[in-house]
């Protein structure tokens, strides 16, 4: 079997790591610190697949039954 790509699984939404500028923009838009976002652990399979490091912010594009597409963010924590 070829390597298992979790992003192809029907339960896993698409996700990207945000750049520094994008994080800053997001922070200013909501007026929050990035730790105030929901968290995701560094050891999370999604983080490992993306190669995200603690301190990064991940943008998640969920499929939503109400909105069609919903954007969420998670802050990578180091445990």
């Amino acid at each position: 079997m070829s390597k298992f790509d979790i992003f192809k699984h029907e339960l896993v939404p698409k996700a990207v790591v945000l750049s520094k500028e994008e994080v800053e923009e997001l922070r200013r838009l909501y007026g929050i610190r990035k730790e105030q976002l929901p968290w995701i652990r560094r050891s999370d399979p999604m983080c490992r697949a993306l190669g995200a490091k603690p301190g990064d912010v991940i943008k998640i594009i969920r499929k939503s039954p109400v909105a069609g597409e919903a954007i969420a963010y998670r802050y990578v924590v180091p445990w």
């Binding site: 699984h9 339960l11 896993v12 995701i40 999370d44 399979p45 999604m46 983080c47 998640i60 998670r74």
Partner: peptide, 19 residues
């Protein structure tokens, strides 16, 4: 990519918190 289980902890472990 379509396997489903009703064990939510297994999903968290294998596919991540978003799944």
């Amino acid at each position: 990519y379509k396997v489903y289980t009703n064990n939510i902890f297994e999903i968290a472990e294998v596919l991540g918190i978003e799944a």
